[in-house]
Amino acid sequence: MSESMVQIHNVTKVYERGKQKVEVLHGLTLEIPRGDFVALMGPSGSGKTTLLNLIGGLDQPTAGEVTVAGSRLDQLGSSQLAHWRAHNVGFVFQFYNLMPVLSAEGNVELPLLLTKLSGAQRKKNVAVALEVVGLTDRAKHKPKELSGGQEQRVAIARALVSDPQLLVCDEPTGDLDRTTADEILGLLQVLNREHGKTIVMVTHDPKAAGFARHTLHLEKGQLLEQAA
């Protein structure tokens, strides 16, 4: 864990809500080493999701520098950012956000449509990803035929399938019961420890944060402390 996966320097993010301007992040500076598993905690409106969006290349800072996986995201245009996301980051959402019209394997294959892999190679990668999350036997099922925990596993497989170094998780267990949540968090831990994925996870749940290597606390758009 020597070099940095995420470097954020003096980042400010201002949202315009109608005529009102809301500064969500105030000159935030942060560094996350490669291979780390970081939990971002803080009260609602503290800027956790905004920070996660910046790290995942979903949004641009108003000021400051965001460097992730060696790329200055604050300098990339919309299509460059899309290309960067496709190759460098996987996303896991609270409500899974799977495509209801596709089967589990179809959902997992979706990011691979952006690659030049053959159909056979894509199928192979999908099978591996579903095996990692323990859902091989549910490959043909549509999301509505799966439980919440299984849907989240499919979402994790989708995030993994193009082998990104960084996983960005926004409240990945927020919609799950305790047992299932622990299973998902255990899976993320395995991905971090055994597959070397860097994971940044937003959570309200201290128990979920306990699965991370580090926890960062945000309040009113500023980093409060860094705890081991």
Partner: peptide, 15 residues
């Protein structure tokens, strides 16, 4: 709309 946003999140361009 959320599904289209997810497509963009996964790396599909605006085009």
């Amino acid at each position: 709309i959320p599904e289209l946003a997810v497509l963009k999140t996964l790396g599909f361009s605006d085009a």
